[in-house]
Write a protein that binds this DNA or RNA. Structure first.
Lengths: 202, 202
DNA sequence: GGTCGACTAGAGTGATCGATCTAGCGAGGA
DNA sequence: TCCTCGCTAGATCGATCACTCTAGTCGACC
C-alpha cells in the first residue's frame, strides 16, 4: 500500500530513505530532522528524495509514521502471539520496551510519540496518520484481549490504558535515563490485564 | 531563583519572553519554535532576548522547562489540596486535563512532554531540567499520597503510574482529538489510588 | 546635573532550512 | 542501434535559522 508506482521490484533507495527517516524522527523529532540529514543517513542522493516523495517533507513524514506504526503493531503480534498467555504477553511487551531503552541508551522508544506531539497542532495530515496508527494498535490489542476471553468494550478500555501506560513510561524513562517507570508500569499493566480477565470469567 | 541579576524589580519583558516561549513550546516543540516567533509573540525586541538569555535558545529552553514544570506542579497543589479527599483529587486532575484539552482544541497539554521527547537525546542540559521537573511532580504526588495515609514506597510507585497514565492520555487525546483516553485513564487512576489507599489501611 | 549601567531596538552575520532545477546514467523495448 | 524513461546526482534557489553587533533610550545614583 505505501508505494504509489504501479508495479516493479521495490526500490532499495526508497526503503533506505524511509528507514533512515524513521530512525531520525525517533531521536530528533520531525522539525529536528533535516532533509539533508535524511539523504546522508540513507546514503541516497538528494534528487532521489524528491523523486520518491514529491510531496516533500510532510508526505515523507506521513509515510514514515504509517510505516513505523505498522512495524510496531507487528511487534504486538510477535510478542502477544508468542506468549503463553495474554497477561504474560502484556508483561513481556513492557519489559521488552525497558530492555530496548537500556540497550539504545534511551534513544529508541515509541516510533511515533515524539513526532506525534510535535505535529499534532501543526500538520493535519500527519496528525491523522498518527491517529490511524494508534487506532490500529488499539484494534490489535483488542483482538488479543478478545482471544483471551475479554469482551470488546472492556478490551478497548483496557488496551487504551495499557498504551497510555506504555507511552507515559517511555517519556519518563527517556527523561530520567532509568527504567524504573517502565518496570512499575509493567507490573501495573499485568495486574490490570489479570483483573479484567478475571472479571470477564465471571 | 530564576533571575541571575542580583536584585531589582522583575523585568516584565523577561517574563513575557518566558511565557510566550512556554506557550510556543507546548504547541510546536523546541526545534519547531523560532527565536523570531518568540520575540513576536512576546512583543519584545530581539536584542532584549539575548540580553536576558545570553545562553541562547538552549538556556531559554532550560529556564522555560523549569518554570512551566513548576507552574504545573503548583496545579497539583491546587487541585489535590482543594479536593475533599485524595482519590477525588486524582480524578479531578485527570478530568480537568480533559476539559483543558477540549477548551484549547487539543493544543494545550503537558507543558514539557513535547519538548522532553524532542531533546532527550539531543540536549543534556534540557533533559536534566525535564528530569528535575518530573521528579518534583513525583515528590508532590508522594506528599499528597502520604497525607492520605500511603507509605512512601507504594506512594512513589502509584504516583509514577498516575503520571504515566496522564502523559500517555495526553498523547492519545492530542492525536485523536478526542478525550476518550483521558476519561478512561481518569477512572483507572481513581481506581488505582483507591486500591492503594485501601491496601494501606490494612 | 552629569554619569553609568541596564535595557531596548533592529539591522545584519554566516549557516542551514526545505525545495527546485537541469543534466546524466543505464536498462528494456522498438 | 537508438530511444525512452525511471532514477540518480548535486548545484542552486530564496527563506529562515540562531545569533551578534552597534546605536540609542531611560532611570538610578553620586
Amino acid at each position: 500500500m505505501p508505494t504509489p508506482p504501479p508495479a516493479g521490484p521495490p526500490a532499495p533507495t526508497r526503503d533506505r530513505i524511509l528507514d533512515a527517516t524513521a530512525d531520525l524522527f525517533r531521536r530528533h523529532g520531525y522539525t529536528g530532522t533535516g532533509m539533508k540529514q535524511v539523504v546522508t543517513a540513507a546514503q541516497a542522493p538528494f534528487g532521489s528524495l524528491y523523486h520518491h516523495f514529491p510531496g516533500g517533507k510532510e508526505a515523507l513524514g506521513v509515510e514514515v509514521i504509517g510505516r513505523s506504526g505498522e512495524m510496531y503493531r507487528q511487534l504486538f503480534d510477535v510478542i502477544l502471539g508468542g506468549a503463553p498467555d495474554y497477561v504474560t504477553g502484556v508483561g513481556d511487551f513492557f519489559l521488552g520496551a525497558a530492555e530496548l531503552l537500556r540497550a539504545t541508551d534511551y534513544e529508541d522508544a515509541c516510533p511515533i510519540a515524539t513526532v506525534a506531539l510535535e505535529i499534532a497542532s501543526t500538520s493535519e495530515p500527519m496528525r491523522e496518520a498518527c491517529d490511524v496508527v494508534v487506532e490500529s494498535w488499539i484494534a490489535t490489542g483488542v483482538e488479543y484481549a478478545g482471544r483471551a476471553g475479554i469482551a470488546p468494550e472492556p478490551a478497548r478500555a483496557l488496551t487504551i490504558r495499557l498504551i497510555c501506560l506504555l507511552e507515559g513510561a517511555f517519556l519518563l524513562c527517556r527523561v530520567a535515563k532509568r527504567t524504573e517507570a517502565m518496570e512499575i508500569c509493567a507490573a501495573s499493566a499485568m495486574a490490570d490485564a489479570r483483573a479484567v480477565l478475571a472479571d470477564a470469567r465471571t
